[in-house]
Design a protein around this nucleic acid. Sequence first.
DNA 1: ATGAAAGCGCTAACAG
DNA 2: CTGTTAGCGCTTTCAT
Lengths: 332, 332
Amino acid sequence: MSQPTIRHVAERAGVSKSLVSLVMRGSSKVSDERRRLVLAAAEEIGYRPNAAARSLVRQESHHLGLMVSDLRNPFFAEVTEGIVAAANAQGYRVLINSGFLSPARETEALETLLELRMDGILMAGARVASRVIRHVAASVPVVAITRSVRLPGVDVVVNDDHMGAGLAVDHLVELGHRRIAHIDGGSGSGANRRARGYVATMERHGLASHVRQVRADFTEEAGEAGVAQLLADGPRPTAIFCANDYQAVGVLDALREAGLDVPRDVSVVGYDNVHLASLRRLDLTTIHQPRQEMGEQAARLLLERLTTDRESRRVIIPPKLVVRGTTGPPPR
Amino acid sequence: MSQPTIRHVAERAGVSKSLVSLVMRGSSKVSDERRRLVLAAAEEIGYRPNAAARSLVRQESHHLGLMVSDLRNPFFAEVTEGIVAAANAQGYRVLINSGFLSPARETEALETLLELRMDGILMAGARVASRVIRHVAASVPVVAITRSVRLPGVDVVVNDDHMGAGLAVDHLVELGHRRIAHIDGGSGSGANRRARGYVATMERHGLASHVRQVRADFTEEAGEAGVAQLLADGPRPTAIFCANDYQAVGVLDALREAGLDVPRDVSVVGYDNVHLASLRRLDLTTIHQPRQEMGEQAARLLLERLTTDRESRRVIIPPKLVVRGTTGPPPR
DNA sequence: ATGAAAGCGCTAACAG
DNA sequence: CTGTTAGCGCTTTCAT
C-alpha cells in the first residue's frame, strides 16, 4: 500500500523528478506537452503529494492547528466554521484537536500540533495555565479565542461579556423592571465579566439598591437552585438575568414549578443564544455572540501574523440582544 | 523562529545525532549519564521532535485522521471522544477535519488527511459518494461510522436502527397502544431503516392494519407538519414514534398547541437521546445510541487493520430504550 | 525548458 | 554503548 511518489511519476512520464515537482506546483515554465505527459502519468498511478515531505523542505506546512477545549459545545463548532472559512479563503487548511475539558489533555493536544509544525495555532476555550500558552507562543504564532490572556505573541478574540450583560439589563429596565436579579456563572468562562457588567449597568440605571446576585454556575441544576434561593427570602425579583442559556433553562423549569408564569410574573434572559434557546418550547430571550465572526477574525489575525511581525492584538466582539418570549413588562 | 533540531541538541550535548535520536525514542541502550546529558540539552534549547520528518522516514505517522461530516452535531462529538480515547490508549493521536455537510468539502477534508499520510482514516456521517470512500480506502484503511457502505477495505460501525425502532414500538405496545403512527426521517441517515423497523415490528405484533406513516425529515418543523397531517384525517393515533429527537420536539409543541396532553392523550417516542431529550422540560422517552462506544469500536477496528490484513467487517451496535415522561398508557 | 545534486529533520542499519 | 552513513519524498539552487 506504499504510495506512489514523485519519482514514480517521473519514471512513468520519462522525465526528471524536478520537472514533476515543477508541474505539480503549476509552474509556467514547462512546455505544454510535458505538462500533459506528467499530469497524465500522475493521474494514472494515483499520485498524491506527501504533505510531510513538502512541509519538511519548505519549512512551513500551510496548515493551521486548532485546539478546541470542548468539542461537545456547539459554540465552538460555529467558531470553527468561521476559522476554517477564513483559512481556506487564503489557501490554508485547518487541523483540529480536542482537549476534552482537561488541561492536561489540552496541553497534549497543543504539543501534537506543535510537533506537526503547524504554521500557527488557534485555541478555543483553552483552560490550560497561561504559562502553557506562553510556551506554545514561543515557537509559533498563537491566537486565543474566548480566553483573555495578555501575552506577547498571542492575539486574543473575545466576546464583550460586560457589554452583553449591559444589553440584558438595559432591555429589562426598558420594559420597566427594577428588581432584576442575576444568577452568576461561577468560574465559567466570561462569567465574571458578565456579573460585573450586570452590577455596573444596574448602577448606571440608579438601581444599585436592587442588585441581587446568587452564586451558581453554568448548569441547569444551578439555575434551579438559584431560583430556590431567590424565592426563599427577600422581595421576589420581577426579572432574572442568567449567566448562560443552560442555566436559564433550569430557571424556567424552577419558576414553572413554583407556579410562576414567564414572562407575566417573572422575565428571564439567558446568554449565548445556543440552538436550544430558539426552540419554540423555550423561546428564550438571550444574548447572542457572533461565533462565526469570532472564528473568522481569529483566523485572519493569525494569518496576518504569519507574514507581518507586529504587536499582539485583542479583538473584542460586541454581542447582540435577541428578544424572544421570556421577557415582558413586570407584573402590575 | 526556526525550531531547534536533533542536531542542535547533539552539538549542545557534545554527542552524535543518532545518540540523541536513541534517547528521544527512549532506547534502553544508552548510558544513564549520556541520557541525562542529552535530555538536559534538549530541555534547555526547547527541542521538540518534528513529526513530519519522523513520519517521512518511518513511513508511518502514528496518527489517525477523522473526518466529521458535521461538527455542530453533538452526536459526532461523543463519537469522537470514543475514538480519541481508544486511539490514545494505543499510542495513536487523532487529527480532526470537518466536511461541513457538503460532499465537496468532505472530499477535500479527506484529501488533506490523505496527503498528511495518516495511518488510517475514520469518517463519521460521511455524505460523499461511495466511490470517494472507495478511492480513499485504496490507499489507507478506512472505517465508516454511521454510514453503511459495503466496500473492500472499509469497516463499518452503525447503530441498529431497525432494532431501535423495534424497541420503541415494543415499549408502546406493552403500554397498551395499538394506533401507533410513525413520522419518518426522509433521506436522513438511518431514517429508512427506522421506518422499516417500525413497520416490521407493528406487523410482528399483529398491528399491520394500524401502520400509519407520514413522510417528513429530521427537523422540528417536520414534526409539527407531521402532527398536523396525523390529526387532519383518520382516527387519532394514541402514540407517535418519531424519526429523531429534534422532530419529536416539534411534535410535542404541535400536540400541545392542538390542546392534547402528553402522555395522557398521546405518547411520544424520539430517537437519538440527544442532550435536549433529558431536559426536565422535554423529558422525552427516546432511543439511545451508545455513541462513545461506537467511536471506540471504530478506532479499535481501524487500529486492528493497521497490523493485520483481514476482510472488512461491520459492527452493528444495539441501541437502548430510555423511558422518560412522554410515554404512558393510552387514553381510557 | 529540463536535469543533477544537495539537503530539510529524522531513523535505521551497520560498524566499531 | 556510540558514531557513521544512507536515505524517506520533496523543493530548490545551479548548470546545461
